[in-house]
Design a protein around this nucleic acid. Structure first.
Length: 285
DNA sequence: CGTAGACCCTGCGCGC
DNA sequence: TGCGCGCAGGGTCTAC
């Protein structure tokens, strides 16, 4: 399985759902199985969501934020295997036919339009809860989060400054959400390949010019993935129920032993912080 | 304080 | 062919 919902996938989902959801209204909240990484607060959701109009969809890091009339915000995180699909006109027949018999469907929101917004997550790494919009910034899921990678703040200078006083390798540093959000395992590998920086290189040993390349590597690989519609995943489906679709070409991730597209040398795999890292030992120093 | 590791969970690929 | 094992991993919490 290559990849999972990372920032580009969530952003693509947001864009695809927004025009269909805004203006619709949540008629009923049905929680089929509350068991997730954190239990779904069924009673609160029923109380705060029922009857509310959907005002807009935002994204913060990999969280999808659905703003509702009255100031409540529905927070959805897809974890590794979560999907959010809108059925009715838009869902593929096999999903529509399953109705609520799908054992992995955790929540169904019945909308006034007659459509249903379904959240399913077999591996249960996702999150589904709500809170007042005004409290998001102070909520423990959001309070520590760093900058958005595509908001214009991600520069070499920013990374260089945040690396000061730190010692670890650059790849886990890039994945640290306190520094910059939304850079997961796949895209951190791809960004460092683009930048020509070795994933095990200490952040204390990266010069300003190279930090600039790391920053642009992150920005460019994420922007490219969003443009293409997110990387394809077996488990991922966009808001209209299509499973995966187009895919940006991954240069290193999942390509251990295969030839580097630039130098033809073998891509190598190592483990950092318990996670697979792929890189080209010749092109990345 | 900064970093490393455990944990949550199930589908799937692989080896025997 | 069938089965069992180990890997996949974001985010939060705990341990050092």
């Amino acid at each position: 399985m290559l990849g999972m919902p990372e920032l580009p996938e969530v952003e693509v989902l947001r864009r695809s759902l927004e025009p269909h959801l805004v203006g619709d209204r949540i008629e009923r909240v049905v929680v089929h199985s509350p068991a997730l990484r954190e239990p779904i607060p069924a009673a609160r959701l029923r109380r705060r969501l029922t009857g509310k109009r959907i005002e807009g969809l935002r994204r913060r890091a990999k969280y999808l934020l659905i703003d509702l009339e009255g100031g409540e915000t529905l927070v959805v995180h897809l974890g590794m295997t979560g999907t959010l699909t809108l059925d009715g006109i838009l869902a593929p027949p096999e999903i529509a036919a399953e109705e609520q018999t799908d054992p992995h469907e955790h929540v169904t929101l019945l909308l006034r339009s007659g459509r249903r917004l379904r959240f399913r997550d077999p591996r249960r790494f996702g999150l589904f809860f709500s809170l007042p919009a005004a409290k998001i910034e102070r909520d423990r899921h959001f309070a520590h989060l760093g900058i958005e990678p595509l908001g214009g703040e991600l520069t070499g200078t920013y990374l260089h400054r945040h690396a000061a006083g730190r010692r670890g390798p650059v790849k886990p540093f890039l994945m640290d959400a306190r520094v910059v959000v939304g850079v997961g395992n796949i895209y951190s590998c791809e960004a460092l390949y683009r930048a020509g920086v070795h994933p095990a290189r200490s952040v204390a040993r990266i010069a300003a010019v190279r930090w600039e390349k790391v920053a642009s590597g992150v920005r460019e690989v994420l922007a490219a993935a969003i443009e293409v519609g997110g990387t394809t995943l077996n488990d991922f489906a966009d808001g209209e129920g299509k499973s995966g679709y187009f895919q940006i070409e991954l240069e290193v991730y999942g390509r251990e032993g295969e030839p580097c597209h630039r130098c033809a040398g073998a891509i190598r795999r190592i483990v950092q912080s318990g996670r697979s890292t792929f890189y080209c030992p010749k092109c990345q120093r």
